[in-house]
């Protein structure tokens, strides 16, 4: 077990192929985020470029439109816009390969 610095914003990279990490608490814009591996080692400390809600994802690598977004070691979608390191990823900048998220939102409406 590793004891981390108290109060530090954290995110977990679930698989080493992932280019996103999931935050373990609500993160405020500008906060430094400690990105942890499954073993608990610190991989990087990017700054959050905006507010990120609990359980949401930030980018660990810069992504261009059309780049694959990897989580759980698999492709969960593609970037629908350019994304910078530390930026919040969600339906506004990532689309499903199988069914575009925007269509799901239309279905919801």
């Amino acid at each position: 077990m590793t004891i981390y610095e108290i109060g530090m914003a954290k995110a977990i990279q679930i698989d080493d192929q992932d280019n996103v990490a999931t935050v373990t608490s609500k993160v405020s814009k500008g906060a430094q985020v400690e990105v942890l591996s499954p073993e608990g080692s610190i991989l990087m400390r990017p700054d959050a470029l905006g507010d990120v809600p609990f359980g949401h994802k930030i980018a660990l690598k810069p992504l261009a439109r059309g780049d694959e977004v990897m989580k759980y070691g698999e492709v969960i979608g593609v970037a629908s816009a350019g994304i910078e390191v530390g930026e919040w990823l969600h339906t506004h900048n990532v689309e499903s390969i199988r069914v575009p998220t925007s269509k799901l939102q239309e279905a919801e409406a």
């Binding site: 999931t22 979608g77 199988r98």
Partner: peptide
């Protein structure tokens, strides 16, 4: 292929992510 608003609010971006 439908994913609820609750799923999306919770941070799930795509159906692939939810199922994975």
């Amino acid at each position: 292929r439908y994913m609820s608003k609750g799923n999306q609010d919770g941070g799930l971006t795509t159906l692939e992510e939810k199922s994975l």
